[in-house]
Amino acid sequence: MQINGAVALVTGANRGLGRHFTKQLLERGAAKVYATARRPELIDIPGAEPLRLDILDPSSIAAAAGIATDVTLLINNAGITTYTNLVTGDLDKIRLEMDTHFWGTLRMIRAFAPRLSGGAILNVLSALSWFNYEGATAYGAAKAAQWNMTNGVRLELAPQKTLVTGLHLGAADTDMMAGYQGPKADPADVVRAALDGIEENRLEVVFDEWSAMVKASLAEDPSRFYKLT
């Protein structure tokens, strides 16, 4: 899969990682980049083609798919965090997490997969695909579901030669992580690594040492990772 000459569609392109994906795709020679958002008027990246899209709305996905019929690379970047716990949290917020990360991403893949023979899909996942923490357990559950959905989709689309890549990272310096006080990666570096991974036909891009450590911990007893009281 080569970025140069590709036609890409990026969800959540108005800010954060999505904005960097759009800019770097164009810099790498993508023939066209559909930069999608619920408010496409907020997209001001020269050379991008703004397109209205709400991944929570099946009719919006269908409309976008009817316009962007030439896509060869789908970047499923759109995401949220509600900082909600599973046991005591608002069920509507928990459902919103799952609707966004699992169902929204899956609907995008189902809508665009028929035209991605020989193309690629990148799903922006998280180190939280592999662990969870108090205060945002709904997000971890949704990302875990999105991760294994990515694995399943990869198997189903292999016969049509569609590359399906999962990107895992810890915290990046974006609006969504503004309240996080720990170390944060430069989002431009994250995107660069992800696009390199696509061109290298990698099934998974584990961006940072934190994500690699979390993944490795899955082979150990959970008590070594979680300090329960």
Rank of each mutant, 00 (worst) to 15 (best):
L56S: 08
I45G: 04
R110Q: 14
N85R: 11
E97W: 01
N85C: 11
G104T: 11
G16M: 02
G135R: 10
Y226Q: 04
G166M: 02
A111Q: 01
A216E: 15
Y83F: 14
T88R: 11
A13K: 09
G118R: 06
R19Q: 13
M213N: 15
L195A: 09
D186Y: 00
F112E: 02
V33H: 03
G135S: 07
T69R: 12
I67T: 14
T82F: 08
G197F: 04
I55H: 07
P183W: 07
D90M: 01
V214D: 08
Y133S: 14
R95A: 14
N85G: 13
L228Y: 15
G119P: 05
S117Q: 12
L116G: 09
A142W: 06
Y133K: 11
T84G: 09
A35W: 04
T22G: 03
P58R: 01
A35R: 04
A144T: 14
A136H: 13
L128W: 10
A158W: 06
I45W: 05
N14Q: 12
L91C: 05
A216N: 13
A212G: 12
V205H: 01
A138T: 10
G18T: 03
A68V: 01
V71T: 04
F207C: 13
I45D: 03
N123T: 11
K32E: 03
A188N: 13
E200K: 15
I94R: 06
H20K: 09
A78F: 00
Q24H: 06
S223G: 10
N4A: 15
R28M: 06
I109R: 06
L25P: 06
Y133D: 13
W103P: 04
W103I: 14
Y133G: 08
L51D: 00
G179H: 05
S60H: 10
D189E: 15
R95T: 13
Q181M: 05
T162S: 03
V206P: 07
R192F: 09
S59G: 09
T105W: 02
L91A: 12
F225A: 10
V191C: 08
R52G: 12
T137L: 06
Y139C: 12
M176P: 01
Y34W: 02
R15G: 02
L128V: 10
G182D: 13
T81V: 11
G66E: 10
R192T: 14
V205K: 05
T22Y: 06
T72K: 02
I43S: 05
E41Y: 06
T22N: 08
T100W: 03
A142Q: 07
G16Y: 02
L74W: 02
V205W: 02
A141T: 15
N4G: 11
N85Q: 15
S59N: 14
A113P: 09
L26C: 07
T229E: 14
M213S: 15
V124T: 15
